[in-house]
Design a protein around this nucleic acid. Structure first.
Lengths: 253, 253
DNA sequence: TAGTGGTCTAGACCACGTT
DNA sequence: ACGTGGTCTAGACCACTAT
């Protein structure tokens, strides 16, 4: 037969689109460049806008694109390597690692956190909020849960709340001896408050890094940090400059 | 005024839906239970099917649901903790960690990999494929790139390819002294082949763990492992049984 | 063959940032 | 005010799994 094998394996349109766009990004666009808008791209490829969006969503998930409402779709720079677990075993706030205390108050933690901290169900704990800024961008938001028993000498008079109190809690925590820590990473979606801090929409994909700090045989603190999954590559160990990435990258003029 | 504050902050429908469903999952459904189908759920909530699907997608991303074409939507068990980086610094294949060699052949690596390996552009390297099985489920697929210079004594006669050769490459690799290794984690989407191995659709969200093995000052091997993001929580360090999770969970009868 | 989730369409309106 | 991406609808058909 003279027929070429058309769609004998019906690859989804959005998948094929994604491939085509991905190659175009490598060869025809520079980092920071603005793509044509969705309606035009859809028309150009002869698909419905929803289908085009499905392809764009995937590319954004992979960190190739950045979309902003009211602005447009731009070509994203390669993901930045963000070091997690500097030097292995240190209390939070010890190193100058880009974490900035935001505020702190006393609140009842979620049930799952209370369980990990081995505190009573209704016992309030210190909740320290911090945000991490790298290369001028907020890449992570953290909630650090510290049981009152972990910082017994904290004076309530110092500051009732706010960044000053956050620093005080961290300072008291660092006076204890850190036995060990363990960490886990999983995929999540940004809660409304985290999303705002990270300059993303609610539900945006994030990498949730949970760290448990152990001192004197007990969980002395629990950190839940949410990193922007689109722009961050979490690195562990010495050098964080390994670049495993797609093709050529140029800079927008 | 007698008006209640209706939608003064117009929260998206799918977002609200997600919240409602999430609570229902906690209180009214058991792990493994099958939800009503999408058309019925959409009708029940009075939304279009696409909107309902947007909520389900998010819940699946968070590991709360599992959807299978032709079958239905089921309540997912809590994510399993998968240890990454057992004992810190060991060659792949040393520990009994659930990794199984699949096959191996000589191929030209992607440009980015060749760069990290510091091999010549067109120089073929050993590509070992392995898959990791935990609790009876394939949770990860790996491509391990090993330059020929890292396993100089590998005899070509042993086996031309296949699992036997994969084991041979690993064995030779383990004879060298491992200096250090560094690792990074980022979000990706499954390529077609990985997706098949992981029993997911192409484009499914995965956690990509890249490990660089250093021996004699050079990158002796590079591992790119893709983990199912929906079912896995990657753990680092001693105990991997910290459970930071949502509400109550029951078991399906 | 029946029922499920996956893909796709062609519209509409809304929220947001810029001008 | 305008243009962007974000949300939503009401359909249609397809691919897969189980019976």
């Amino acid at each position: 037969m003279g027929t070429t094998q058309l769609e004998s394996v019906p690859e989804p349109k959005y998948w094929h689109l994604k491939t085509v766009l991905s190659e175009a990004l490598d060869s025809e666009f520079a980092v920071g460049e603005i793509l044509p808008n969705e309606r035009e791209l859809a028309a150009r490829f002869g698909v419905a806008r929803a289908t085009l969006r499905q392809a764009l969503e995937q590319l954004e998930l992979e960190g190739r694109l950045q979309r902003r409402r009211g602005v447009g779709t731009t070509v994203a720079p390669p993901r930045m390597g963000v070091d997690v677990g500097t030097g292995g075993q240190v209390w939070p706030g010890t190193a100058d690692d880009g974490w900035q205390p935001v505020d702190c108050d006393l609140a009842q933690p979620p049930a799952a956190v209370a369980e990990a901290l081995e505190t009573g169900r209704d016992e309030p704990v210190h909740v320290v909020r911090r945000s991490r800024v790298t290369h001028g961008q907020t890449v992570a938001a953290e909630l650090l849960y510290v049981p009152q028993s972990s910082v017994p000498e904290l004076s309530a008079i110092d500051a009732p709340s706010g960044a000053a109190r956050a620093r005080a809690v961290l300072r008291e925590l660092q006076r204890r001896e850190l036995e060990s820590q363990d960490r886990s990473v999983e995929l999540g979606s940004a809660r409304a408050d985290d999303a705002k801090e990270l300059d993303r929409l609610p539900g945006a994909p994030v990498l949730v890094v949970t760290t448990r700090f152990v001192a004197e045989g007990r969980t002395a603190a629990l950190s839940v940090a949410t990193y922007r999954a689109d722009t961050c590559r979490l690195t562990f160990g010495a050098t964080g400059d390994v670049e495993i990435h797609h093709g050529p990258e140029r800079q927008a003029s």
